[in-house]
């Protein structure tokens, strides 16, 4: 017990540092993937056939293969195969590579959710807008968008909660996120060695983070609950 109390502050300090990196990856992924997903969604719904087929194939490949492989390819491919340094060295380089992989991967998942949401709005809504003299952009922003958001909040919240947990995959390219920080104590770090509980304790951070997100999405759902589609 005495030992645990001595170790606890050291471990928490170290896990906090790792968790900041986890959070940073999470936020950067959302900031990149939310808009990129919309672009991909419009690409896959395009009337220009080659564009929509090309986009759908990319989405299929990205969604059909493990994120871990994508991470490894994006991180190692430029250096090993092309003999070029794209990512630079050190933690910053690993973070850039991880962000790129996560943004591409999650943008593809988001694009499918967006597409489902947009296509589930009945054509009658668009036709009603057209007959009332609205332009297509007006119909999108004033008629469809709210209905799309209402429909995609539940699948989006699932995906975003999965993202919180998926950030741990960046451990594979040695990004110093929270799992990496917890694992360090198993070997030896800051005078603590052979301790497994810090690794388990990282779970508390994920739970807290996802608890907050669940509350946030519940609030958004209630906000949009005033009407039915």
């Amino acid at each position: 017990m005495q030992l645990f109390l001595e170790q606890f502050p050291i471990v928490v300090r170290s896990l906090n540092v790792g968790f900041m990196q986890t959070l940073k990856l999470f936020c950067v992924t959302l900031i990149g993937a939310l808009p990129l997903g919309l672009v991909i969604a419009f690409g896959s719904m395009s009337k220009v056939k080659p564009l929509s087929i090309f986009t759908r194939i990319i989405v299929w490949i990205v969604r059909g293969s493990p994120l871990m492989i994508q991470l490894l390819i994006i991180f190692y491919f430029p250096g090993i195969v092309l003999h070029k340094t794209v990512w630079g060295g050190g933690e910053a380089g690993r973070f850039a590579a991880a962000s790129t992989a996560f943004i591409i991967n999650y943008a593809c998942y988001f694009s499918e959710i967006y597409r489902g949401g947009i296509q589930s709005v009945p054509v009658g809504q668009e036709e009603a807008g057209l007959v009332l003299g609205m332009t297509k952009p007006q119909i999108f922003f004033h008629v469809k968008l709210s209905q799309v958001i209402k429909r995609i909040v539940p699948p989006m919240s699932n995906e975003i909660i999965t993202l919180v947990k998926d950030t741990s995959l960046a451990r594979i390219i040695a990004l110093q996120e929270i799992i990496w920080a917890g694992q360090a104590f198993m070997k030896s770090s800051q005078g603590i060695s052979g301790a497994i509980w810090p690794l388990f304790f990282t779970g508390v951070y994920y739970l807290a983070c996802n608890g907050l997100l669940t509350l946030l999405f519940g609030w958004v759902e209630r906000k949009l609950g005033y009407y039915k589609v």
């Binding site: 009945p122 009658g124 036709e127 209905q147 209402k150």
Partner: peptide, 16 residues
């Protein structure tokens, strides 16, 4: 289009 108005069988009101 504004010369004509159209009332649909299925109303097509904007639910929000």
């Amino acid at each position: 289009r504004l010369r004509f108005g159209l009332v649909f069988q299925s109303f097509n009101l904007f639910p929000q």
